[in-house]
Amino acid sequence: PDDLEKRARELLKRGKNPDEIREYLRNAGYDQSQAEEALKRAL
């Protein structure tokens, strides 16, 4: 898994919901489609 996916998994483990994770990834400078893909793979 790429770093983005790892980060998404990490956040899920900490109890973040998908919307929070999307926002976090966007704020971290990733584009929307990258964030969506990583989140899908992590779920």
Score class of each variant (00 low, 15 high):
Leu12Thr: 02
Gln34Ile: 11
Leu43Cys: 09
Gly15Gln: 02
Lys40Asn: 12
Asp2Thr: 12
Ala35Gly: 03
Leu4Met: 08
Ser33Ala: 14
Ala38Lys: 01
Leu11Thr: 00
Gly15Thr: 02
Leu11Lys: 01
Glu5Arg: 07
Leu12Val: 07
Ala35Cys: 10
Glu20Met: 05
Tyr24Asp: 06
Arg22Ile: 15
Leu25Lys: 00
Arg7Thr: 15
Pro1Ile: 15
Glu20Leu: 04
Lys16Gly: 05
Leu11Gln: 04
Arg7Asp: 06
Ala28His: 10
Leu11Gly: 01
Lys40Ser: 11
Glu23Met: 07
Asp19Leu: 06
Asp2His: 11
Asp3Lys: 07
Glu37Met: 07
Arg26Gln: 09
Leu39Gln: 01
Asn27Ser: 11
Asp2Lys: 09
Pro18Gly: 05
Arg14Met: 15
Glu20Pro: 00
Lys6Glu: 12
Asp19Ser: 09
Gly29Asp: 02
Asn27Gly: 09
Leu39Asn: 00
Leu39Ile: 14
Arg26Phe: 09
Leu39Pro: 00
Lys6Ile: 11
Pro18Asp: 04
Asn27Arg: 13
Pro18Leu: 12
Asp2Pro: 09
Lys13Trp: 07
Gly15Leu: 03
Leu4Trp: 06
Leu43Lys: 04
Tyr24Met: 14
Lys13Tyr: 07
Gly15Ile: 02
Arg26Ser: 07
Lys40Gly: 08
Asp2Tyr: 10
Leu25Ile: 04
Ala42Trp: 06
Asp31Glu: 11
Glu5His: 12
Lys40Phe: 11
Ala8Gln: 00
Asn27Lys: 12
Gly29Trp: 01
Leu43Asp: 03
Asp2Phe: 12
Arg7Phe: 15
Ala38Phe: 10
Ala42Glu: 01
Gln34Lys: 10
Ser33Phe: 14
Glu36His: 04
Asp3Met: 11
Arg9Val: 08
Glu23Gln: 10
Glu37Asp: 10
Lys16Phe: 15
Gly29Thr: 02
Gln32Lys: 10
Glu37Gln: 11
Ala38Leu: 08
Glu5Pro: 05
Ser33Thr: 14
Asp3Ala: 12
Ala8Val: 15
Glu5Tyr: 15
Asn17Thr: 15
Glu36Gly: 03
Lys16Ala: 13
Ala8Asn: 00
Glu37Asn: 08
Pro1Lys: 11
Leu43Ser: 05
Ala28Phe: 08
Gln32Gly: 10
Leu25Phe: 15
Glu20Asn: 03
Asn27Phe: 08
Lys6Gln: 13
Ala28Asn: 08
Pro1Gly: 11
Gly15Asn: 03
Lys40Met: 14
Ala38Asp: 01
Ile21Arg: 00
Gly15Val: 01
Gly29Leu: 02
Ala28Glu: 13
Glu23Ser: 06
Asn17Tyr: 06
Leu12Phe: 05
Gly15Lys: 02
Ile21Gln: 00
Ala42Val: 14
Asp19Phe: 06
Gln32Cys: 10
Asp19His: 08
Glu23Thr: 06
Glu23Asn: 07
Ala28Thr: 04
Arg14Trp: 09
Ala28Gln: 12
Ala38His: 02
Glu36Lys: 03
Tyr30Thr: 03
Glu36Asp: 11
Gly15Ala: 02
Lys13Ser: 11
Ala42Lys: 01
Leu43Thr: 06
Tyr24Ile: 15
Tyr24Val: 11
Ser33Lys: 14
Gly29Ala: 02
Ile21Glu: 00
Leu4Lys: 03
Lys6Thr: 11
Asn27Pro: 00
Ala35Leu: 14
Arg14Gln: 15
Ile21Trp: 01
Arg7Gly: 04
Arg41Val: 06
Arg26Met: 15
Arg9His: 07
Glu23Asp: 10
Glu36Val: 04
Arg9Thr: 08
Glu20Ser: 04
Asn17Asp: 11
Pro18His: 09
Gln32Tyr: 12
Leu12Cys: 04
Arg26Ala: 10
Pro18Ala: 12
Asp31Tyr: 03
Glu20Tyr: 10
Arg26Glu: 05
Lys6Trp: 13
Leu39Glu: 00
Lys6Pro: 03
Pro1Asp: 12
Arg14Thr: 11
Ala8Asp: 00
Gly29Ile: 01
Leu12Pro: 00
Ala35Arg: 03
Lys13Asn: 11
Leu4Phe: 05
Ile21Lys: 00
Arg9Pro: 00
Glu23Phe: 05
Tyr24Gly: 03
Arg9Glu: 04
Ala28Cys: 12
Arg22Val: 15
Tyr24Lys: 03
Gln34Asn: 06
Ala42Ser: 03
Arg41Leu: 08
Lys16Pro: 01
Arg9Gln: 07
Ala28Pro: 01
Gly29Cys: 03
Ala38Pro: 01
Tyr30His: 05
Leu43Gly: 04
Asn27Asp: 10
Asp2Arg: 10
Glu23Leu: 06
Asp3Trp: 14
Lys13Thr: 07
Asp3Pro: 08
Lys6Phe: 13
Tyr30Lys: 02
Asp19Asn: 10
Glu5Leu: 15
Leu4Ile: 12
Lys16Gln: 08
Gly15Pro: 00
Asp31Leu: 08
Asp31Phe: 04
Gln34Trp: 08
Leu39Ser: 01
Gln32Arg: 12
Leu39Ala: 02
Asn27Met: 14
Arg14Leu: 15
Arg9Phe: 06
Leu39Phe: 03
Glu36Ala: 05
Glu20Ile: 03
Arg26Lys: 11
Asn17Met: 10
Ser33Ile: 14
Ala28Arg: 08
Leu25Trp: 05
Lys40Cys: 12
Gly29Lys: 02
Glu23Ile: 08
Ala28Asp: 05
Asp19Thr: 08
Glu37Trp: 06
Arg7Ala: 14
Ala8Tyr: 03
Tyr24Leu: 14
Arg22Gly: 03
Arg14Ile: 13
Asn17Trp: 05
Lys13Asp: 09
Ala42Thr: 04
Glu37Ser: 08
Ala38Gly: 04
Ala42Ile: 15
Leu43Met: 13
Ala8Pro: 00
Ala8Ile: 15
Arg26Ile: 15
Arg22Ser: 04
Ser33Glu: 15
Glu23Arg: 08
Lys6Tyr: 12
Pro1Glu: 12
Leu25Ala: 02
Glu23Trp: 06
Glu23Ala: 09
Ala35Met: 09
Arg14Asn: 13
Glu5Trp: 15
Tyr24Cys: 08
Glu10Cys: 13
Glu37Cys: 09
Leu11Arg: 01
Pro1Ser: 12
Ala35Ser: 08
Asp2Leu: 12
Leu43Glu: 04
Arg7Glu: 11
Asp31His: 07
Ile21His: 00
Pro1Asn: 11
Leu4Ser: 05
Arg26Pro: 00
Asp31Thr: 15
Pro18Glu: 09
Pro18Arg: 06
Leu25Met: 10
Leu4Arg: 03
Glu10Ala: 09
Asn17Glu: 09
Ala8His: 00
Glu37Ala: 12
Gln34Met: 13
Gly15His: 03
Asp19Tyr: 05
Leu43Trp: 06
Tyr30Pro: 01
Arg41Asn: 08
Ala42Met: 13
Arg41Thr: 06
Asn27His: 10
Lys40His: 13
Gly29Phe: 02
Arg9Ser: 07
Gln34Glu: 13
Asn27Thr: 09
Ala38Ser: 04
Gln32Ile: 14
Arg26His: 08
Ala38Ile: 12
Ala38Tyr: 04
Gly15Ser: 02
Leu11Met: 14
Ala38Gln: 02
Arg41Trp: 06
Ala28Met: 15
Lys6Leu: 13
Lys6Arg: 14
Leu4Cys: 11
Glu36Ser: 04
Asn17Lys: 12
Leu4Glu: 02
Gly29Pro: 01
Arg7His: 11
Ala35Val: 15
Leu39Cys: 03
Glu20Asp: 06
Glu10Phe: 04
Leu4Gly: 07
Glu36Tyr: 04
Glu36Pro: 01
Glu37Arg: 08
Ser33Pro: 08
Asp3Glu: 14
Asn17Ala: 11
Arg26Leu: 14
Leu11Glu: 03
Leu25Val: 01
Pro18Phe: 10
Ala8Lys: 00
Glu20His: 04
Glu37Tyr: 05
Arg22Glu: 04
Ala35Glu: 01
Ala28Leu: 15
Ala42Tyr: 04
Gln32Asn: 11
Leu43Tyr: 07
Ala42Leu: 14
Asp2Gln: 11
Ala38Cys: 10
Ala35Trp: 07
Gly15Arg: 02
Leu43Phe: 07
Leu43Ile: 09
Arg41Tyr: 05
Asp3Tyr: 13
Ser33Gly: 13
Arg22Tyr: 14
Arg9Cys: 08
Arg9Met: 09
Gly15Phe: 04
Lys6Asp: 10
Glu20Val: 04
Glu10Leu: 07
Glu10Val: 05
Tyr24Ser: 06
Leu4Tyr: 05
Asn27Ile: 12
Leu43Asn: 04
Ala8Met: 11
Lys40Asp: 09
Lys13Val: 07
Gly29Met: 02
Glu20Ala: 06
Arg7Ser: 08
Arg41Ile: 07
Ala42Phe: 08
Leu25Cys: 03
Leu43Ala: 05
Arg14Asp: 12
Gln34Ala: 13
Ala42Asp: 01
Arg22Phe: 13
Gln34Val: 13
Pro1Tyr: 13
Leu4Pro: 11
Lys6Ala: 14
Glu10Ser: 06
Arg9Ala: 09
Glu5Lys: 07
Glu37His: 07
Lys6Gly: 10
Asn17Ile: 05
Arg9Asp: 03
Asn17Val: 06
Gln32Met: 15
Ala8Glu: 00
Gly29Val: 01
Leu4Asp: 02
Lys40Ala: 13
Leu11Pro: 00
Pro18Asn: 05
Lys6Val: 11
Lys40Leu: 13
Asp2Ala: 12
Leu11Tyr: 05
Leu39Trp: 01
Ser33Arg: 13
Leu11Asp: 02
Ala35Ile: 15
